[in-house]
Design a protein around this nucleic acid. Structure first.
Lengths: 347, 347
DNA sequence: CTTCTTAGATAATAGCTATTATCAGTCGAC
DNA sequence: GTCGACTGATAATAGCTATTATCTAAGAAG
């Protein structure tokens, strides 16, 4: 039992100086309002004692009073640091950290949350969520029910990525504007002379997938081209390529990076050159994960770091009582790349 | 002003149920000791109210009483997430996170600490260090004075990497055993027939550098070979190689990865083959940072993740009052690699 | 009927800080 | 000498939970 010597408290300082605890508190906080009057001599005496003891106010007691903690929580459904997930989380966290630093908030990672079938749970007996003034929720898989409960309990939070409405109302969220990005890419493709373009993927289900499809559809309408949707799930790249040819499509927009890799490989096997014979637009939104040589894909970049920063920003505003819009949609950067070119036979 | 509706408190639950706040607290904590008696009927009533409101005890008030917070601080002298520093911090953090998760601690990152000429400061007016029960200190540049103050104030902390003594006594720390690793590499080199080996670098200054030199010296003694130390600071790779040849050394142990890269390049220019003409042992301790093709260097790996985990572990023990050893030195893994081989002309 | 025991609960308090209300002087003015 | 105004401080309290000491009523034992 270490029997740690009790921390110094304001009471201690007060006794040392022969003043009251209240006085110490006021000196500490530089209170000098109309009502509060402390002569410099007393101030100096107290400050000297503070200096000599190295006293620092107990932030926990402060929080209990002020009802805020200057801490933002970062809740992730998976561990943050393991390598597999790092590529995903890292840019968000970089932005979160940067802005928290600017705003003077500390960050708490809720690593103590119990893991229930593969994902952490926000709510559980002894949840320490309230340590934070507010929370940024982050993750590939975000639990709608938990978000709904956050809303119901009035706990301030901002979701990064997921922005669909939950039962109790719209969720404060920062998202990426997939729709515009994909639409723009389709328009460029049409502008290069392609007359039929293919969407490879589901285009439904997760919000982000539905958005990509929506953007694709919008771009197709704008560009006045024909379009076809090719399912990739459960089919190998060969089948997909066959369908592509069959439909006469000259450009493919691929949702899933895994499919992209498979298609590139299959093209290589068949001697189909990209972009000379077929164009490929990659809709993953991330830089390539592997260091292996991959084509310089045409596509877009999700502004992950900026999303993290804006999430913190938004959270701070909400805590400040700001009643402005609670959803921010950030533009994605278009990557010109080298896998999109004019089709071989322009009509 | 949001006029956030006040959080539910035990007092609220008490009023709803017609019991006292104390009873609510006891039900909540499942108190059932000899002195505490609460019939099941009452218990159920209270629990029902807790369920319906979703009440969770305010962790801040709890902390104020229990004098602990179930939070470990992670103090870094630089931002954690920016890409430049990520390679360095990430493995440590992965280990810290993993073990904190296992032990049920949350982690707080002191992002609010003010930055003074390039590095964050632990101590400052309004330091929120005490939010944490203890702290892991991490960083390339660790401030001795601040560590000393942590010791003086009796704040529990564990330093990762830096383990030298500070004024007030030995610092709890987790380090990597560079000495053994480098010594072993030198012995292997001697075992392959090398008679003269060179240490390229300072071998002094930062603890880790001094350790590498100590290990080199120990290995040289064990292996019974001759050794030479070549400064690299301010000299270009050509000069260093010239010295090497001049001294008749057939293997070089290079401290700094930048020097390694320069030497490899210079060897390439001169047509000196590695390891056929000269062996190279890389003492950086990290996997290569760039994705560019680099030789598969012989060297060792600092067990960064394990260091992070053990730091948390040690911190938990210290908080538990454990009086055991406060310094842990973890073995490095030797990487056989492909840049060490027998010298061309074995005597 | 009195006293003791016990079950079942509550009042009071600690933990530390910030704020509000209050108090003891002093000085001036009348 | 009294009243008011002002200075320089302090006592008390809120904030929320966990624990300790205390209290009431009922039943048992004598």
């Amino acid at each position: 039992m270490g029997k740690e010597k009790r921390r110094t408290t304001q009471q201690d300082i007060a006794r040392m100086t022969g003043v009251s605890q209240a006085t110490v508190s006021m000196v500490l906080n530089n209170r000098d309002d109309g009502e509060i009057r402390i002569p410099q001599e007393t101030r100096d005496r107290v400050l000297a004692a503070i200096q000599s003891t190295g006293y620092v106010a107990n932030p926990i007691a402060r929080s209990l009073i002020s009802q805020d903690n200057r801490i933002f929580g970062v809740f992730t459904y998976e561990s943050v640091f393991p390598s597999e997930d790092l590529d995903f989380y890292h840019p968000f966290l970089a932005g979160i950290e940067r802005r928290a630093e600017q705003l003077g908030y500390d960050l708490v990672l809720f690593t103590s949350s119990p893991v229930v079938d593969g994902g952490r749970k926000i709510f559980h007996a002894g949840s320490r969520l309230r340590l934070a003034d507010g929370c940024v929720v982050l993750g590939r898989r975000v639990d709608r029910a938990e978000l709904a409960r956050l809303v119901a309990e009035g706990f301030p939070f901002v979701s990064v990525g997921r922005r669909d409405d939950v039962a109790a109302g719209p969720v404060a969220a920062v998202g990426a504007d997939y729709v515009s990005a994909v639409a723009e890419l389709v328009r460029r493709t049409g502008g290069l002379g392609h007359r039929t373009v293919a969407f490879v993927g589901e285009g439904a289900g997760p919000e982000s997938s539905a958005d990509r499809w929506a953007g694709f559809a919008a771009g197709v309408a704008d560009a006045g081209v024909r379009s076809v949707r090719l399912r990739a799930k459960g089919r190998d790249a060969g089948e997909v390529l066959d369908s592509l040819v069959e439909h006469g499509a000259t450009a493919m927009f691929v949702e899933d990076p895994d499919d992209t890799a498979a298609l590139v490989e299959e093209c290589g096997r068949r001697g189909v050159r990209i972009p000379e014979d077929v164009s490929l637009v990659e809709l993953g939104g991330s830089p390539p994960r592997t260091a292996r040589a991959t084509p310089d894909f045409t596509g877009f970049r999700i502004p992950r770091e900026e999303m993290g920063a804006q999430a913190v920003d938004l959270l701070a505003r909400i805590l400040g009582g700001d009643r402005g819009p609670r959803t921010r949609l950030l533009p994605c950067r278009i990557v010109a790349g080298a896998t999109l070119a004019a089709p071989r036979s322009t009509p």
